[in-house]
Design a protein around this nucleic acid. Structure first.
Lengths: 102, 102
DNA sequence: TGATAATATACCAGATATGACATATTATCG
DNA sequence: CGATAATATGTCATATCTGGTATATTATCA
């Protein structure tokens, strides 16, 4: 539906399928992105609660500051797996992750 | 803790870290695997409810029968992303996925 | 039992994600 | 304002994931 949103997402690297819905995202795509954003934001929230910098968190997770930034921004090169693993490493539980998603 | 379980997981391709817990899985690792298994099983359940074969489902998802089998078995080469995308394509919602996980 | 459908396992080439690094941009504070 | 910490963005080699294919194993049923 929203051309600007589509362009914005694509410019960030998202590949927007057009089989069923030429402009805009399919229901599955947008739900998937919503889930990732929810996880991203939860990660940023948790980090700030603990007063850690991205660099500090990166070291705890054997990652890099730039990747933490991308995780928290919902960058398309970040997988749900990585977000979930990061949250678990920060002490999240299945229940809290479920709550974040649902 | 359980040596056999560790060997079993490793033989299936899981890489069991040993920084904090030489034998057995760290809390994060086992929780992550639990989540994947829950998603795997939900996918298998949904497919069977719909009386689809793995081959039929594979075609709907632009995937392959072998990958569906691996998804349903919790194979370590299957990402949470793929499982979530498959569930969404089968009509799952954020809420139902959250319930599956949590 | 044998035939056939369904599922599982093994492998690979191409696609995607990851950490690392460099650099840019944006706070924060004197 | 300048200095410095924090966050964001771009790029890339390597690692991991994915669909496809082949083949093996396991149901299902006549």
């Amino acid at each position: 539906m929203d051309k600007n949103k589509k362009r914005q997402l694509e410019s960030k690297g998202y590949r927007v399928g057009d089989t069923k819905d030429f402009l805009g995202l399919s229901q599955e795509q947008s739900t998937y992105i919503e889930m990732k954003l929810a996880l991203s934001q939860a990660l940023a929230r948790k980090r700030k609660q603990r007063r850690l910098t991205q660099l500090e968190l990166a070291r705890k997770l054997n990652s890099s500051q730039s990747r933490i930034a991308k995780m928290e921004k919902g960058d398309p090169t970040v997988s749900v797996d990585l977000l979930v693993k990061a949250l678990l490493a920060m002490g999240a539980t299945k229940k809290s992750i479920a709550k974040t998603i649902g």
